[in-house]
Amino acid sequence: MKIIAILIGISLIMALVFLFAFYQALKSGQFEDLESPGFRLLDKKETDITKTNNNAKGKL
């Protein structure tokens, strides 16, 4: 049964990885606007899609 200790460790690490991923996503502004990206998808212009990908990063 001691193997469970290792499993617990792995699960904790995985959870921490997810928590960190969430933090990164939050920091990059992905949760600021949950609607417009969906609308952009409807916009067929390819140029715009690449453009808005840049925008999503929120950098200049």
Partner: peptide, 13 residues
Amino acid sequence: HRTAVNFETKTCT
């Protein structure tokens, strides 16, 4: 050069 709309807050950068 570029515009980005935030639909939820109704702002445009």
